[in-house]
Amino acid sequence: MTIRHHISDPLLMAYSAGHLPEAFSLVLAVHLTLCDDCRARLGAFDAIGGVLLEAGNREAMGPGSLQATLARLDRAAPAAPSRRGKDSVPAPLVDYIGPDLAAVKWRSLGMGVRQAILPTDTAASARLLYIPAGRAVPDHGHRGTELTLVLQGAFHDEIDHFGPGDLEIANEDLNHQPIADLGADCICLAATDAPLRFNSLLPRLAQPFFRI
């Protein structure tokens, strides 16, 4: 897998700091699972957090806190090894959709495009999008940030071509119409922190029902 579109520094720093909505963190976690270069960059941002922690304010712990913590240690079981994803579903997504992409319950958005909304905190929403080969998502702009990560297949829009693992970061400045490549159906993981701005009437009318 050759990944060409990566996580921006501000997003990676906010993810390291722990200030992103869950939906955004999920998209980034999937990209980081697939991209060691971004994983290494994340390590550098985590190191900033380490330096700040080391140099930061100290607040005295209450008397007996060490004893209380020591007393807990023998009761605590070692942390379980983490889950591994199946071929088609990267590990961070397994908690949300299970281990099998084929088992996802899709709902139609019209024109053959389907979605499945994932349960996350409400600061942003996350969904899987299924775009049949050659089909398009209606063209739209953005009121906030939209992250789109390709899980399967590929799409192109006004910006570039996006294949498996690639991340597109869209903001207020971008109007685009993602179109799935002809060869295969495209499945994406997308997250937005504000409703999209559809340019034609029909999708706009349908928007509230699809929570997109």
Partner: peptide, 17 residues
């Protein structure tokens, strides 16, 4: 950081594999 997200924001931060 993870404990803070859990305790203060009552939210989750999905992690890479």
């Amino acid at each position: 950081r993870n404990r803070r997200i859990d305790a203060l924001r009552k939210s989750r931060r999905p992690e890479p594999e």
